[in-house]
């Protein structure tokens, strides 16, 4: 379980991410294939990316809380070139990058790619759900279309 992974080891598991004390819980969650967003213990609002206090009420008591990963594509672009990453071949196909508005809270979004879906189907408004793939030997969260959508 990810609790056993100390901070130094966590950084090594995600060499392409700048992890800090505010975001370490978020990335530890990836190791267990759980998407954990900071939720305020006082006002119960989620925020992302992880911040040291709740931006809504300044409460510093925050609980990394698993979200469903279900939502709707809010922004969608296709990279024809970009940073190198395993499994991403820009010459083969433009790489989709989407910001998904999650069902838990209006305006709460998470950005990743979309898999298992023809390019033409990836558009703003498409309902998607969370899936996990492997990148550099660690879990990596992605989206795929909700079946039947």
């Amino acid at each position: 379980m990810s609790e056993d992974v100390d901070d130094a080891a966590l950084i090594e598991r995600f060499p392409y991410v700048r992890i800090d004390h505010d975001s370490k819980h978020f990335y530890r969650g990836w190791l267990d294939e759980r998407l954990l967003f900071n939720r305020c213990d006082a006002c119960e609002r989620f925020h992302h990316p992880p911040k040291p206090v709740c931006p809504s009420c300044w409460c510093a008591s925050l609980t990394p809380t698993e979200v469903s990963g279900r939502g709707v594509i809010h922004l969608a672009m296709f990279l024809h070139q970009g940073p190198p990453a395993p499994g991403v071949d820009y010459a083969m196909a433009a790489h989709p990058v989407v910001a998904v508005e999650l069902e838990e809270q209006e305006g709460l979004r998470f950005t990743s790619t979309v898999i298992g879906c023809p390019r033409e189907a990836i558009r703003i408004g498409l309902p998607v759900e969370l899936g996990w793939v492997e990148r550099f030997g660690a879990p990596f969260p992605v989206f795929r279309p909700v079946e039947g959508s």
Binding site: P15, Y16, V17, G82, P83, A85, H95, V97, T111, S112
Partner: peptide, 13 residues
């Protein structure tokens, strides 16, 4: 510094 993943909408993207 740290090379970002493609799946980001930071800054220019």
């Amino acid at each position: 510094g740290v090379m970002p993943a493609p799946e980001s909408v930071n800054a220019a993207a």
